[in-house]
């Protein structure tokens, strides 16, 4: 499998916001390859394009130019619905702001992706409960987000991201709104998912402590990849 293509390949990706004189190029030609099973931390100063590239990788946003191949398929030429199905079946997201449905129980939030996948009710409930248990929230199924702490809300978001058993977990500053204690717990959870379930993880973080959990660190600067090196996983 030496000639096997990587899981993800970005080639010459640019992203320009706005048009004309006000146009701003947030990404200036990104080339990046990510293999299955990797745990990559994306770092870099604020405004360097980290979120922009994550959104493109997550098919939430489209590049202005360049090519994005996911499992050999060209994402940049896909329709909206095709990209939605890609998200549905292969991608899981964790956001800095959690993005849970308000006034909706943890269980129902976690169930949501399975409903769109047409999962029958019984297996859906079972899978959602199992996911909540895995993130350490057994017993919190019936709590709405406003009854949960920030760390717990992020756990619900992680449970929602992994309940579909995705290939890739994309996390944009997942610990950005959390204190150190909760941050470490979330990082343990994410690295466990990478280690035990083989989920490819791409994570944006500002904090070296959090990046230390990853085995590869990609640094961004002014919309370009500034450095890309592998490291030993933290003990």
């Amino acid at each position: 499998m030496t000639a096997a293509s990587p899981l993800i390949r970005l080639a010459g990706i640019t992203r320009t916001y706005g048009a004309g004189a006000a146009a701003f190029q947030a990404l200036n030609g990104i080339d990046l390859e990510i293999d299955e099973g990797e745990f990559v931390a994306v770092m870099g100063p604020s405004g360097s394009g980290k979120s922009t590239v994550m959104n493109i990788l997550g098919c939430l946003d489209s590049p202005t130019a360049g090519s994005y191949t996911f499992q050999g398929a060209h994402v940049e030429s896909m329709t909206r619905d095709q990209r939605a199905l890609l998200r549905r079946h292969f991608l899981g997201f964790v956001f800095q702001g959690f993005n849970l449905l308000s006034r909706t129980t943890a269980l129902e939030n976690v169930e949501l992706p399975l409903i769109y996948r047409g999962e029958p009710a019984t297996s859906r409930h079972a899978a959602a409960r199992a996911a909540l248990q895995q993130v350490g929230l057994a017993g919190w199924e019936d709590h709405a987000p406003n009854e949960l702490s920030g760390g717990q809300q992020q756990r619900v978001a992680i449970a929602r991201a992994i309940v579909t058993d995705p290939k890739v977990l994309l996390a944009d500053e997942p610990t950005g709104n959390l204190d150190t204690h909760n941050s470490c717990e979330i990082m343990e959870l994410i690295s466990g998912l990478n280690r035990d379930r083989g989920i490819t993880v791409l994570m944006v973080t500002h904090e070296p402590d959090m990046a230390a959990y990853a085995r590869r660190v990609v640094r961004f600067k002014d919309g370009r990849v500034d450095s890309d090196h592998r490291q030993e996983e933290r003990a």
């Binding site: 993005n99 449905l101 949501l112 996948r117 579909t164």
Partner: peptide, 19 residues
């Protein structure tokens, strides 16, 4: 505003526009 964010969440986790 709330609904737009909700729709964003639904789309992000793989809902089709028509759904």
């Amino acid at each position: 505003t709330e609904r737009t964010r909700e729709i964003g969440i639904r789309l992000a986790i793989g809902a089709l526009e028509r759904e």
